[in-house]
Design a binder for these strands. Sequence first.
DNA 1: ATTTTAGCTTTGTATTGCAAAGTGCTTTTT
DNA 2: AAAAAGCACTTTGCAATACAAAGCTAAAAT
Lengths: 98, 98
Amino acid sequence: MNPIGNLNKIFESRIRLGVMSVLMVNNEVNFNDLKQMLEVTDGNLASHLNTLEENGYIKVYKGFIGRKTNTTYAITTAGEKAFKGHLVALEHMIKFTK
Amino acid sequence: MNPIGNLNKIFESRIRLGVMSVLMVNNEVNFNDLKQMLEVTDGNLASHLNTLEENGYIKVYKGFIGRKTNTTYAITTAGEKAFKGHLVALEHMIKFTK
DNA sequence: ATTTTAGCTTTGTATTGCAAAGTGCTTTTT
DNA sequence: AAAAAGCACTTTGCAATACAAAGCTAAAAT
């Protein structure tokens, strides 16, 4: 009945949607690649990554390439589940409109 | 490349998404029906309807049933186009993640 | 005459979004 | 060796939502 009842509030943000979408296809993506793919400022990206992490949807790996810091982000099982659920809800909504 | 580059900012809102979705399948829907379908407060709905109208995505028809006011909302051609574009962008994003 | 309904507007608060600047560490450039 | 630049942030600050709740007007129902 309510076409938006099953949409996940966390994924209302365009940028968070984008992050999840990128992390669904790429196992691990670093900060800069995400930043370039989504065309956002670093501060903005960092804060959205934060809320995704706080919700347990992504994991952060802080490592090094040689002695240079390298932070990568990956989707968690919970994140994958939540995102897929959201996509299903979106698909239902889309189907509903046709 | 950017999976969220073509998403329409106006449709980031869950409620506006819902309104458009409902108006895609029903030619004309009145205020109260929308309110019940989307389970929102009237003030909140009114303000979202306002931004949709300001953007030319919906039309408002103020009429009467007998002598009782009856306001209905319908999607415009521009609204349909914009919403369909957004759905295509969503579908691309979804396809991208699979 | 009072209450209820429809469709708002107004008010107020809390949250969000985002840019810009700052930070600490490291690497690269000069 | 010093300066510049990159990485991954945090902090600051402001402006734009989001939303609930209350108020409001005219008509309808009781």
